[in-house]
Amino acid sequence: MASLEKRSPLQLIAPYVRVFDGPLMLIVILIMTVGTITLYSAGIDFPGRIEDHLRNITLSLLVMWIAALVPPQLLMRFAVPLYVGGVVLLLAVAQFGLIRNGARRWIDIGVVIQPSEIMKIAMPMMLAWFFQKREESTRWREFVIAGVLLMVPVALIMRQPDLGTALLVLGAGFYVVFFAGLSWKVIAAGIVAVLASLPIAWSMLHDYQRGRVLTLIDPTTDPLGKGFHIIQSTIAIGSGGLTGKGWLNGTQAHLEFIPERTTDFIFAVYSEEFGLIGNVVLLILYLLLVGRGMVIAAQAPTLFTRLLAGALAMIFFTYAFVNMGMVSGILPVVGVPLPFFSYGGTAFVTLGLGVGILMSIQRHRKLMQS
């Protein structure tokens, strides 16, 4: 007891803080800080929005800390149950899910959840586990099985319909398959097959999804309807110029021309107020986030941890690329938030879990070396 009394408060909390990876934590905190500053401006007309955002950040950090404590070996044990449970819940959504705004994406199991969010983490964990178990004999058959494991939840999510989440889950799984050694010839053949099947895929899209693609090509065909989002967001980005209009001075946001300005289109608010220089800074932060994740992947001791870390790092890239491309008018509007930036509790928790897993991989690698 005497030895404990002599220790300073900093020494007492140090073991709990060391679970965080310093460089990764610094990058995430910087992105969260910039996002909070932008959200304060974007959500100034939404009472309680900034308080809710700070609560989401706190919850994300808590999830991050807990995940960082979990050994990668335990994550492997959870991979199959989490994937199977996620698929079962997606099947349950298809039969008994709640319908909101024309989409069946949620299910009430005592609490209302969106099972597709689970697959953003469960999918790369499952495929990383799959290739770890077949590390000594990875042949074309293993890639076919992996493709089936990937497409089952993707198809169920697209059926809801939720194209944005389906693309994120597809990307998360594809990164694992790619890092596992998928041949470039197969990738090229897949691209050709996708291009050839576009007419069929077009006929299978819902009307609103086809509308988004047509609006992307020419938003002026419906400037007050489907094209309104893209037109107003690109006006905001362009009006920011080099240095921006200044914090709290964005006219497009505060005159309510930018829809969903605290969530999917918050990047337009940021661009208007902080300009091209601010955008470059934010892009550098996201590149550092992805880069740090790839470094952790390269240093990971097992195939499971290398594949999982690499896929998680690229998920952050996908989130940022799709959101910025969507807001800039070069990609269709699919409802993907800007990571650690946009308002939203579910995305914050999912992304925090991903960062926590990266920290766990890095932390336990160091423990194995010491």
Results as ranks from 00 to 15, higher is better:
202 W>C: 04
330 I>F: 06
156 L>N: 10
25 M>Y: 13
151 M>C: 14
13 I>K: 05
361 I>Q: 05
297 A>T: 09
219 P>N: 05
265 F>K: 06
361 I>N: 02
148 V>A: 08
199 P>F: 01
274 F>Q: 12
117 E>V: 05
99 I>Y: 00
316 F>E: 00
306 R>I: 00
112 V>F: 09
343 Y>V: 01
188 A>Y: 09
344 G>W: 00
153 P>W: 04
39 L>Y: 12
148 V>W: 07
209 Q>H: 13
265 F>I: 02
72 P>D: 04
368 M>E: 14
191 I>A: 15
268 A>Y: 07
300 A>W: 06
93 V>M: 08
157 I>N: 11
267 F>K: 08
91 L>A: 15
85 G>K: 08
171 G>P: 11
288 L>Q: 04
278 G>L: 12
290 V>H: 06
77 R>I: 04
239 S>N: 06
253 A>Q: 03
360 S>F: 11
64 M>F: 14
125 M>T: 07
35 G>K: 06
360 S>P: 11
275 G>S: 00
283 L>C: 14
72 P>T: 05
325 G>T: 11
8 S>R: 07
34 V>M: 14
45 D>C: 02
30 L>E: 12
329 G>K: 02
343 Y>N: 03
214 L>E: 10
106 W>T: 06
224 L>I: 02
198 L>D: 13
123 M>H: 10
194 V>W: 11
335 G>T: 04
319 Y>R: 02
94 A>C: 05
326 M>Q: 07
252 Q>A: 10
121 I>A: 04
311 A>L: 12
240 G>K: 02
